[in-house]
Design a protein around this nucleic acid. Sequence first.
DNA 1: TATTGTTATACTCTATAACTATA
DNA 2: TATAGTTATAGAGTATAACAATA
Lengths: 183, 183
Amino acid sequence: MQPGKAPVRKRVASKRPQARVTKPSRAAPRVASGATPVRAKPLALGDLSQLLGYSIRRAQLWIFKEFSRQLAAFEMSPAQFSVLCVIDANPGVNQLAVAQLLSIERAGLGRLVDHLEGRGLVRRTASAINRRYYVLYLTETGTALLGRLRPAAAASDKALAAKIGPRAYKELRQALSIFVGDA
Amino acid sequence: MQPGKAPVRKRVASKRPQARVTKPSRAAPRVASGATPVRAKPLALGDLSQLLGYSIRRAQLWIFKEFSRQLAAFEMSPAQFSVLCVIDANPGVNQLAVAQLLSIERAGLGRLVDHLEGRGLVRRTASAINRRYYVLYLTETGTALLGRLRPAAAASDKALAAKIGPRAYKELRQALSIFVGDA
DNA sequence: TATTGTTATACTCTATAACTATA
DNA sequence: TATAGTTATAGAGTATAACAATA
């Protein structure tokens, strides 16, 4: 809530179970059955399990984890990879066009391109025809790295296909394609 | 990069197109065809369009936006809603169990429950049988609010179904169900 | 006056480690 | 020694507004 650095961090109610003086049923007699789990019955997700939106959220978390695992050696986030792909497919594109295509805020994209430029993967050039523009290209280093990233990204997508099955993979590709290029 | 508040923010390369003295082809003659767009051809996503992982990411962003739109009146994030659902479905559950079921870090969940408790939606009680545990229940306010959130959440899922079509909706529910309850 | 890009700021998430109380 | 929960901290991502340069 408060942005300040005050370390107090008020709490609304009682903080934690916290050493009640009257220990109620001390030495609770091992809870009858199992030792470790207080609750043996499996937990339910409730209505959540009926919402496709929640499944997609969990699937997306799984995919980002898998992607990061496959591309760990390259220190490359999914977002950075997506920007490299777009610049590679559209040499000379400007930043705002990339931001709109990927639904990223231009301010955030600017910092992302900063980083890619700092790594020597992307070259920023002043446009000859419109001096408000940057014109973006992959460097040779960037092209070479993307050549190595592609198989890794494909591998993470194959892992996804293996997880859900090839038929579902094809169906999903078809069904979800309407979200790319969209808002 | 640097966490400090220093406003310098070094840049690796040339900052922006920035007023070159030799203006190259000033008054570029309206670029032949269209006035506004320098690049008329539509941008390509490159290899990105072949990756189901990217489609799922975009679909998930769309869903969160739709969910936030439907539940804007309640000031309720998807994560907060998911926690309310789980507590409602498992009265007396402890925090760690919720965190594991939803794949949320327990530290983050603690703060989230702080917030829900502060709003009077969740009650934390010391467990009688294990004093390390919190035992979580919805308050009456929380139950009542959840009763109003459910239709809104269902509406956002219906919007998703309308977007992708009822057949794809059913297929996806089946195909992606393996991700819930999973890591 | 509108647009591209930058800067600054703030807020949310996430991830981690260290700590307390308890088992 | 291990576990539930808290605290602190740092990093990423996101959203916004304001600004400069250019159109």
